[in-house]
Design a protein around this nucleic acid. Structure first.
Lengths: 136, 136
DNA sequence: GTAATTCCTATTAAATCTATAGGAATAATG
DNA sequence: CATTATTCCTATAGATTTAATAGGAATTAC
């Protein structure tokens, strides 16, 4: 399941990407427009800022703005920050690899092989979609 | 993330599928061989039985056996029983559809569109893999 | 100086997942 | 019939994760 965090984050990014004229977009505006709990969104946008997707301006009339072009923001990168690994099991994760406790040999593991296929198919989709696609 | 339940369930099914000669396979044998907590596995196999994947024989020398040919058991079906929806959000789920609280219009929702693509790519893989493939 | 905003940390509440406990029911075997 | 080995069933505890909130510090425009 996609966490609310990720869902809200993607919606917020989309909202900001669509607000082209505005120099900044405030948390309050996004929260209200997208029906996202304000305080929750606050933390999410902070994460996205620290990860280099968003810039911010403090104080009155402050808010957030995109640092890169929407077309240059791949969904793989956003998902990894908000949701964590793309892979469904750590033992097939490219960026968050971990060995399974129970499994003596990955190459023999049926789940491992299946989950590699799932991972690759998801990667394909997420690499192929940028924020520009979401904002369309 | 794939739950342990699903992971264990898939491993157990694979194990049973590989034990062709045996008329039944006991929980204890699977648990030991696959490093799965015995009591946990007990519940999982019971679920798989109730869902029509496995048959069982009680009493001494009892155990579980496959009801269908491995090649006829699609991963989509197993996953839906053990893990739940294939889709990452209920609003794009074919079998567990639910409307989002926050989203006034699904067709306008960027997350919705993206998650449809992810779902379809996962479905493709999971439909394309049967228990026979896992057991190879 | 005031109002509006981001920034930061901590905490609570709820849900879900993992695992275990304990025993009932069933079947094979000598 | 007694023993042993198994599935079947329900309940529950413990751990982890997620979702949301609280409260205030820092910053900026005007």
């Amino acid at each position: 399941m996609l966490s609310k965090k990720t869902k809200y984050g993607l919606k917020a990014l989309t909202y900001i990407a669509r607000s082209k004229e505005a120099s900044t977009v405030s948390i309050g505006e996004i929260a209200e427009s997208e029906n996202i709990p304000r305080k929750f969104l606050e933390g999410i946008l902070l994460t996205l800022k620290k990860s280099g997707f968003l810039g911010s301006k403090k104080g009155k009339y402050g808010g957030y703005y995109l640092i890169k072009e929407p077309a240059d923001i791949m969904m793989t990168d956003v998902m990894r920050i908000l949701e964590g690994p793309i892979a469904m099991v750590p033992c097939v994760s490219l960026n968050f690899y971990e060995k399974c406790d129970d499994c003596p040999d990955e190459l023999e593991c049926s789940v491992h092989r299946l989950m590699i296929q799932v991972r690759d198919s998801s990667l394909k989709v997420l690499r192929n979609n940028t924020l520009a696609d979401l904002a369309k």
